[in-house]
Amino acid sequence: MSRCYRISVSESLARHVHVDDGLQTKLELLDILPSERMAELLGARLAERGYEAKEGSVWEKTLESGVVVRVDVATGTVDISLTEEAALELERKRSTTVADVDPRTVEEALRKKVKQQLEEEADVATEALRVEVTRKLEEALSGVRKELDDAVNRATADALKEKAKSLGEVTEITEDAETGAVTIRVRVG
């Protein structure tokens, strides 16, 4: 007479996941004045926009979404990144009924399968978190880009004014707020 066994296994997985995404780009700053002075002017305009000076020539700002923007005013390199963490706690139970086999072998195989499924679920959850991080980053990008373009344009205008003063007597400065265009009249010599 055959013997039937009911085998149940329960496995859990607890993991701390850490995902990040980001990109790097470069600002184009014209060499109107020596590079150190251009860096100072850019730093000043970044400070107006909530950036804080960090080590070396790096200025940093953290947005509400957690996106971090780091600008190296000496090189013009911009790093935009977002990191998020999550605690995963997953549990899964599986049962099966077998007959005429060693129940321990079946239990071992079933446990292995459940662990594998938990790993797959953890990977799926991690990837979902990464996709969410990427989405937030993409949302923040256009605003960051506009802000940095604006800071670069203002710093360039500041540099032009400074350069103009070194050439002669500045008689008129006109700025178009819409286009950002700057017209400077200089009486030379």
């Binding site: 995404d21 980001g22 990109l23 790097q24 990464r130 996709v131 990427t134 980053l137 993409e138």
Partner: peptide, 9 residues
């Protein structure tokens, strides 16, 4: 679209 921004850049 589901790939990371880093990979796409």
């Amino acid at each position: 679209a589901s790939s990371s921004l880093r990979d796409r850049m």
